[in-house]
Design a protein around this nucleic acid. Structure first.
Lengths: 341, 341
DNA sequence: ACGATCCGTTAGATCGATATAACAACGACC
DNA sequence: GGTCGTTGTTATATCGATCTAACGGATCGT
């Protein structure tokens, strides 16, 4: 014999299937006595709710899709945890996928999630994802969508750090530190986040400091191995700048490795700074100067904005940007002292 | 008007719904001409496959549930990527959940996944998860289950590193290095993995070396902040051992931070070693001696074992353990030299 | 005493696909 | 020529829940 269904439960409890259904959903309209009888029957028979059937019939699936480029990145780990914590409270289940920052894989994920009728999507778009690819799955199905960290254009709901401000405060710090040349290392070339950080750095550094936006080292994936390769490339160019700025902390960890490998010490021979301020940044040797970009705030706000969009699909696109904060540590400060002294 | 269904498509193409369904599933039995007509109709109407309905009717949902204690841990990140890579090839979607190493949260996740009729489960059990909690959801529904990294008892399908061998080779290394006292730091107290590593360390260190299995620092969660607190506890006890062995690399990163904070240097004032050998281990300062426990091999093998169990549910439980490998680096080697010299 | 209102409950239709068994059309075979 | 098997297609029941509209009975107002 097959699985126990609501039909079996209602028969056992001597009520209709509809009543049993209302009990499972905790309806107020059912009398305590009936509720109790049905609950007892469920326990006796070992009933397991079948969400597939509920998902098919009901208008909502109580599922949210989350797509990020990379799952091993602790920054994104924090963000995902914040998202889940927020949505779990609403009784929503989160479906996580990672795209390897490839738009093709991301299209597949979007398709899978729309096929499963997710109630909404939280997307950190792959760097080369196009509006057409997004619209293809979300427009006809009217699936609410919020972009995180990056966006495609102005019609997107967007939550992320204020990347330009992040670049600006770091640039200013490096200028006052006395840097003469600064190179940005790594990061996904085409992403809006990278563009913003570059613009901010330029503005903060001013015209007196030589700035290389590091297009040659901008690499598709954004993980630690990328940092090693990108830093090696900088060394192989011959002219080592005063400061290397990693696109993110995970990239910078790889850069540390490569700097040590060349017999140099980060923060002494070359100043290093970065973005994100993941917990590990302060544990590196030397501790890493980094601009905090608040993964948990971003995750929480994105989830909340999505909930609002699910409740009211007609609202105009909204943008939420968080003020970054500069965390000064030895990887730049000790270099600063040395060059001054 | 609502969503386009197979009914609409079949009407447009002038065939029956059954035929259209066969076309979506790529059946061989449909003539090329018909296939083409149906495909065209799908494109014209903008048809989106509805997996909810398919999942309800079909015997398989083409979904696998994966439950791990912590999502920010890069070790688990690697493992999840290996799992997804393996299952994606079979057309399966992966549903990931993290339990914070709490059995209650884990029960909820199991329930959610069984409600969604996952075809199988890959589970790294929370340290206090009981057989009853697992059976409650998997037995009546006959959901195939493979445990990873830890197990509850001998009737589980299990894939993981050979923890005892891992402890053994590290213990032997530390003994020949000349360690007099060794303390294990952190880790989930009750997990089978920790028990195995302790047994191995004991055997490898022999009776001449003082070994503290660190029950006082064994902490529920297994992330970097845990390492800081646990190491602080060791310092506060007064007697600092020759060697501290972190339960895992992420824990050990936190230990490094605390050691530096006390004005000491890992690998010079106290030798440090660990388990897992995540990429970051070699980028720390000093590079960390660690026992490789192969997250991608574990993930891949676990996924494959699960596929086999799905194909044949009656097969007896199987255990797969991977030989660990010792990665010698400066965090122990430089201490060794100093103490010898 | 009568109709109006409210409340807990229910029968039956429904969501959109898949499974099953049967179908017509056609050629092969003895 | 009748039987058989094959091939491509289809009618219909089905998965297990939720939605809708309506139900009977109790309570209320007048």
């Amino acid at each position: 014999m097959g699985r126990v269904t609501l039909n079996d439960v209602s028969a056992r409890a001597g009520v209709s299937r509809a009543t049993a259904s209302l009990v499972v959903r905790g309806s107020e309209r059912i009398s305590p006595a009936t509720t109790e009888r049905v609950r007892a029957a469920m326990v006796e028979l070992g009933y397991v709710y079948d969400r597939r059937a509920a998902m098919l019939r009901a208008s909502r699936s109580m599922t949210i899709g989350v797509i990020v480029p990379e799952i091993r990145n602790p920054y994104l780990g924090e963000m995902i945890m914040a998202i889940e914590a927020t949505l779990h409270g609403e009784g929503l289940t989160v479906l996580v996928g990672h795209s390897h920052d490839q738009s093709e894989r991301e299209s597949q994920l979007l398709s899978t999630m729309v096929e499963r009728h997710v109630d909404g999507l939280l997307l950190q778009p792959a760097q080369d994802l196009t509006r057409e690819q997004v619209d293809r799955y979300t427009k006809s199905t009217e699936t609410p969508l919020v972009m995180m960290m990056r966006y495609i254009d102005e019609q997107d709901n967007y939550v992320g750090p204020d990347n330009e401000a992040a670049g600006l405060i770091l640039g200013e710090h490096l200028r006052t530190l006395g840097a003469r040349s600064v190179t940005l290392v790594g990061g996904p070339r085409k992403s809006s986040a990278r563009q913003g950080r570059i613009a901010g750095l330029r503005a903060g550094l001013g015209t007196a400091v030589e700035f290389d936006s590091g297009e040659a080292t901008a690499l598709p994936t954004n993980y630690t191995d990328t940092g090693e390769r990108a830093m090696a490339h900088v060394f192989d160019q011959g002219k080592v700048p005063d400061v290397v700025v990693g696109y993110s902390d995970v990239v910078t960890m790889g850069m540390y490795a490569e700097i040590y490998r060349r017999g140099l010490t980060p923060g002494r021979d070359v100043a290093v700074a970065s973005f994100d301020d993941v917990p590990m940044a302060s544990w590196l040797a030397p501790p890493l100067t980094s601009v905090a970009t608040w993964p948990n705030r971003v995750g929480k706000a994105a989830a909340e904005l999505l909930l609002a969009r699910i409740a009211d699909g007609a609202a105009p696109p909204e943008r939420i940007e968080f003020e970054p904060a500069l965390r000064l540590r030895a990887s730049t400060l000790s270099w600063g002292r040395r060059s001054r002294g």
